[in-house]
Design a protein around this nucleic acid. Structure first.
Length: 895
RNA sequence: GGGCAAUUAGCUCAGUUGGUUAGAGCACCUCGUUUACACCGAGGGGGUCGGAGGUUCGAGUCCUCCAUUGCCCACCA
């Protein structure tokens, strides 16, 4: 496109005219790909690498505003670093999201009329359905990410479930298996009856609900009463735990009671002493159900002599172990039956209504049962062979001292407080159950070979006759059958920063160049799921950190502070917003008023505001487009306002650069916005209309477009194009920071600004006809600093500046060196003006008094730093001078 | 029960290491058909920075306690 004439350019920026086309041009240019940037000479081959991995969105559906915010953060960082000349990679991807996706597809199938999709379709059939859904959703997602303007390298797109990632997952599994860090064990796990699968502790959502706390005795001759909210599980009790020092029960410790509870066979309850029991709570005794309680299972680890009886089965009904009377009943039916039994036999001592938190499956929604099963686990407390440390140790080191005390291998967390939260979480971390019984996911790379059945002796002997093989690929030979289970989706997510870069090939060029990655961002709700697992996997397998910096953001809420949710129906599709207001406006709105780690609100008011800003920038460029003459030229300052705008520009360049380096996105946006609108548009451009220093105006605009580009890539690139440039702004260089401050210009221009504002204020106060030009005379000890700006002042304040004049006038004291007389002959009455000046004088006197008080305090002079004292003294002098002048004016007005 | 945040103008929020008389956007009031922009311009009103103590020459900023709201963790059986 050629250089557009200013009147060819529409008055309002229309995002629809530009966004798709610009994105396509960017993408086709290949500059999203760091290798292309080097080939085309945009980036030096030895440039510093910068890499950021997109947290892969789940292929469960469409993206929401939260994703839009994340993409904006990542893309802003990416574009900034690309402009800094770094070898920049923003790698996109998608997550197969095991449970989440399968449960979504199953729900859809049920809604479409199926009763039990797993049965009706079988493993392969269901997987096929899920694959179709995932592919569909993947393409929607990538379209949305493009629409957000994300400058990611699509040629490197990674999927957590593609061949390269399967290789990484299996390699990692085998490595951990060989190191004894992955084991198969019979332990209690969280079991979702509805989903027919395990879930990890972190996949539980604790929901508060009312419950009844029953206090009862197992039988009349049992010496201790215990309390529970889950009476039906008491059929699996094998012990009662008391505090070892509790005088009430101390003598009973070690005894075993056979108690008849109306089930098939009596319970065998042993009294044990355990430090964890709180003797002051309830009866001071705990009925121990090792099979159906995580903490009780832990008690059994400490007291292996007690039994383990599972009374709830995987279908959520009572087992035969619970006794004939209960077997087959649902837990609720069993509860009622057991309570009825206790009542009949006068064993129930107390019923209390309490609220309790129950763990529910965050995917399937049902209350999770704790059930003992054989599952695969990652051992977090086991020493890693040859390293003398556990996985937990590594996870701690990575964010505190750095791995092995090496600060180069330390991850910095923003905001810092999440470091403490993370460490606290590690303290409570148990072995991680990684096996799932769902089908959509990485199949556990373990194969079993049963012995040949003609040897009857072996089969019945029940001893280690099954061969086990763990490997990256299936073993050779006949008769091997792969483990039916799949892996927790976070297992593959944990490898994300390196499985995407070529690992396990540690010689892969991407891996060597871009790992550890530079920057990561994520929502606070995912820190434990994901950040912790990435750190675990990376420190274990590669002995380094996954990323150098992680920025944690809060949750995006609606304008009333509510979460966005399907059930509330308050969801907003980012694409709708960007279609209506433009992607740039959306991006700005998502970064505004946000502080790290805290939730933020999204409202259409905000987007409207940012849209208006984008339009303002557009019109600034339209104004610049009205200038004639060559676009090149040294930006030589010729006036005070030139010096001011250049000085301020270099200052905000430094500030913006600093804010970006510290991920203070909101401050960066605010800095740029305020400069663009308040300084550049409202003052400098208005002055340019009389001073016409085109070179400076163009220089400022050009620099400003670069500074804005990482935040609002589309409109800035569009402006670049209307200017007739054929070089992408996307690969332009980030502005240099100048190191020669011109602070004098800032102060002097401030006085000019105050002068103009004061005159405008006079007009408003006295309701002076806006079209009437006023006469003004200026006086100063040193007029030199402002004379060059007379035309500007005359235009901005609509005045004519003269030497002196007679007649009624308002006296304005601008500073200690500049004051003005504004002719008000026949415009205002003297009395009103005296009142106005009187007010101003009173204010100055009040301020002077407070400054004097401060200075006369002896300890202020003693203890405050020299600079502060001098500054305060200067302020006082200025204020006193001003007060003097005002007093003079007041006197002259009364004559 | 433990931990972590938040509490600043009517609303939504900034305020980097304690240092000029606390800011922005929206909303509000007054004025304006100035040739970049009404998705605009000019001017203005509005806050004892949740409460109470404390440290300091000086506190929105640091400490203690309290209140309210939110989040995270935790199977008081």
């Amino acid at each position: 496109m050629g250089n557009m004439e200013p009147n060819d350019i529409p008055k309002a920026y229309d995002p629809k005219e530009w966004e798709q086309r610009l994105y396509q041009k960017w993408e086709e240019s290949g500059f999203f790909n760091p290798d292309t940037c080097i080939e085309k000479g945009v980036t030096k081959p030895d440039a510093e690498p910068f890499s950021v991995l997109m947290p892969p969105p789940n292929v469960t559906g469409v993206l929401h505003l939260g994703h839009a915010m994340e993409n904006t953060i990542m893309d802003t960082m990416t574009r900034h670093h690309r402009m800094l000349g770094d070898r920049t990679l923003f790698l996109p991807g998608a997550d197969h999201a095991a449970v989440a996706t399968q449960s979504r597809v199953e729900k859809n199938l049920v809604a479409a009329g199926m009763t039990n999709p797993r049965q009706e379709l079988g493993r392969e059939g269901l997987l096929e359905k899920i694959r179709e859904f995932a592919d569909d959703s993947k393409s929607t997602i990538t379209k949305q990410v493009r629409a957000m303007g994300s400058s990611c390298d699509w040629s490197r797109f990674a999927y957590t479930f593609d061949d390269a990632r399967v290789l990484a997952v299996n390699t990692m599994f085998k490595k951990m298996y060989d190191d004894g860090l992955i084991y198969k064990g019979y332990r209690v796990v969280n079991w979702s009856v509805k989903g027919q699968s395990t879930c990890s502790d972190d996949e539980l959502e604790h929901i508060e609900r009312p419950a009844t706390l029953y206090t009862f005795r197992y039988s009349t001759d049992f010496p201790i009463s215990v309390a529970t909210t889950r009476p039906e599980t008491k059929l699996g009790d094998t012990a009662v735990a008391v505090h070892p020092e509790d005088s009430r029960y101390r003598d009973l410790i070690g005894q075993t009671f056979e108690v008849e509870v109306g089930a098939a066979k009596p319970l065998s309850i042993r009294i044990i002493g355990d430090e964890e029991v709180d003797p002051t709570f309830g009866t001071g005794a705990v009925g121990v159900t090792p099979a159906h309680s995580q903490t009780d299972f832990d008690i059994r680890q400490r007291h292996p002599e007690i039994g383990l009886v599972a009374v709830i089965g995987i279908d959520g009904t009572m087992t035969a172990e619970a006794g004939a009377r209960y077997a087959g009943l649902s837990v609720l039916e069993a509860r009622e039956t057991f309570i009825a039994y206790l009542r009949e036999n006068d064993l129930l001592e107390k019923e209390e209504d309490i609220t309790q938190n129950v763990g529910t499956s965050d995917r399937f929604g049902d209350v999770v049962e704790v059930i003992p099963m054989e599952q695969w686990f990652v051992a977090v407390n086991r020493e890693i062979p040859g390293r003398g440390k556990t996985l937990k140790d590594l996870m701690r080191e990575a964010v505190t001292t750095g791995l092995d005390g090496d600060p180069e291998r330390k991850t910095a967390i923003t905001p810092e407080r999440f470091e403490r939260i993370y460490l606290h979480w590690i303290d409570h971390l148990r072995d991680w159950c990684i096996s799932r019984q769902i089908w959509w996911g990485h199949r556990i790379p373990v194969w079993y070979k049963k012995p040949t059945t003609d040897n009857e002796q072996l089969t019945t002997s029940g001893e280690g006759e099954t061969e086990i093989y763990c490997g990256v690929e299936a073993p050779d030979g006949e008769g091997w059958e792969q483990d039916q289970d799949t892996l927790d989706t976070w297992f593959s997510s944990g490898l994300w920063t390196f499985s995407t870069l070529g690992w396990p090939d540690t010689e892969a060029s991407d891996f060597k160049t871009f790992h550890p990655t530079t920057f990561m961002q994520m929502g606070s709700e995912i820190v434990f799921f994901w950040m912790a697992r990435m750190i675990l996997m990376t420190s274990y397998a590669i002995d380094t950190i996954p990323f150098k910096t992680v920025y944690i953001h809060g949750m995006l809420r609606d304008k009333d502070g509510r979460k966005f949710s399907k059930s509330l129906g308050n969801g907003i599709d980012p694409i709708d917003v960007s279609t209506e207001y433009g992607t740039d406006a959306l991006r700005l709105a998502l970064l505004s008023d946000v502080t790290p780690g805290n939730d933020s609100r999204f409202s259409y008011d905000k987007v409207e505001n940012t849209r208006n800003f984008v339009n303002k920038l557009w019109n600034i460029s339209r104004y610049a487009g009205t200038m004639s003459g060559p676009t090149e030229g040294e930006a030589v300052p010729k006036s005070l306002s030139d010096r001011f705008i250049l000085e301020k520009l270099s200052r905000i360049t430094a500030e913006t650069t600093g804010h970006l380096a510290e991920q203070r996105f909101s401050l960066a946006v605010e800095t740029l916005r305020s400069f663009t609108w308040d300084d550049f548009a409202d003052w400098y451009i208005e002055i340019h209309k009389v001073e016409r220093n085109d070179a400076v105006l163009r220089h400022v605009l050009d620099t400003l477009l670069r500074l804005w580009h990482p935040f609002i890539p589309f409109v800035t690139e569009a402006i670049r194009e209307t200017q007739g440039s054929d070089a992408f702004l996307m690969i332009a260089r980030w502005p240099e920071i100048s190191d020669k401050p011109d602070t004098d210009a800032t102060a002097s221009f401030g006085e000019l600004r105050t002068l103009v504002t004061r005159i405008r204020n006079l007009r408003a106060v006295y309701r002076i006809d806006p079209t009437k030009r006023l006469t003004v005379s200026l006086s100063s000890k040193d007029m030199g600093f402002i004379t060059e700006s007379f035309p500007a002042i005359e235009k901005l304040a609509r005045v004519d500046i003269t030497e002196t004049f007679d007649g009624a006038a308002a006296e304005l004291v601008v500073s200690d060196r500049l004051s003005a007389r504004v002719s008000l002959e026949g415009v205002i009455d003297i009395v009103a003006e005296r009142v106005r000046i009187g007010k101003e004088l009173a204010e100055a006197q009040r301020y002077a008094t407070s400054l004097e008080a401060k200075l006369s305090n002896p300890s202020f002079a003693d203890r405050a730093p020299e600079q502060v004292v001098v500054q305060t003294r200067g302020l006082l002098e200025e204020t006193l001078t001003k007060a003097d002048e005002l007093r003079g004016h007041l006197t002259s007005l009364s004559q």
